[in-house]
Write a protein that binds this DNA or RNA. Sequence first.
DNA 1: GCGACAG
DNA 2: ATCTTGTCGC
Length: 231
Amino acid sequence: MITPVDLAAWPTTEAAALAEQHRLRPLVEPHGPAPAPGALVAGVDVAYDDDRDVVAAAAVLLDLDTLEVVERATAVGRIAFPYLPGLLAFRELPAVIDALSRLTRRPDLVVCDGYGLAHPRRLGLASHLGVLTGLATMGVAKTPFTFSHTAPAPERGAWTPLVDAADGSEVGRALRTRAGVKPVFVSVGHRIGLSEAVSATLALTPEYRLPETTRQADSLCRRALAEAVAG
DNA sequence: GCGACAG
DNA sequence: ATCTTGTCGC
């Protein structure tokens, strides 16, 4: 039987174990170059059927220049963890990693639906995924979670700092990807810097508020879930 | 002590 | 996330 106390404690224990394993080098690298022209950028997302205990994840690979989908992969399984704010990685990553592993090419960057550094423990699902896979990762979230920000100017590309009121640190940016539309929240995961993550986000949002990677992964995992539940 | 709380 | 009616606009 798992108690709430156990759930709250084990990520910290896990982080400590990982920190010990990687004592001689940084666990997370919150800096690095923007994806080069022609890079393969992956989008990942997950859909759930809580009643039937089914989870479906999708990983799509896009060409950064054309934004065309060049590869798709899905994975279906049982739900491994409940949704607990702050522990989203433990719910989403098992299926996400399964789907990612079915791609035949290695992504140059993975864009996650959620946060990286912008997390109460500075290890959101994007950071977590980066550490587990070694891939460059970043997060683009749709809501500010527990962080605060002022409204960016109305034009596309405008941004303001996303701040953790607990310590005043800048953990990401509120970025306007469409003029006059509410911003998205970009944060660094692994092996990419914040400015570079913002650039990548703008490259992935020529038309819609959310990155093309997220949109493609979202529709694919919903389709995969419907198929899994039906069949 | 009580809410708020990525998806 | 998921559920869920109507509405505005290209």
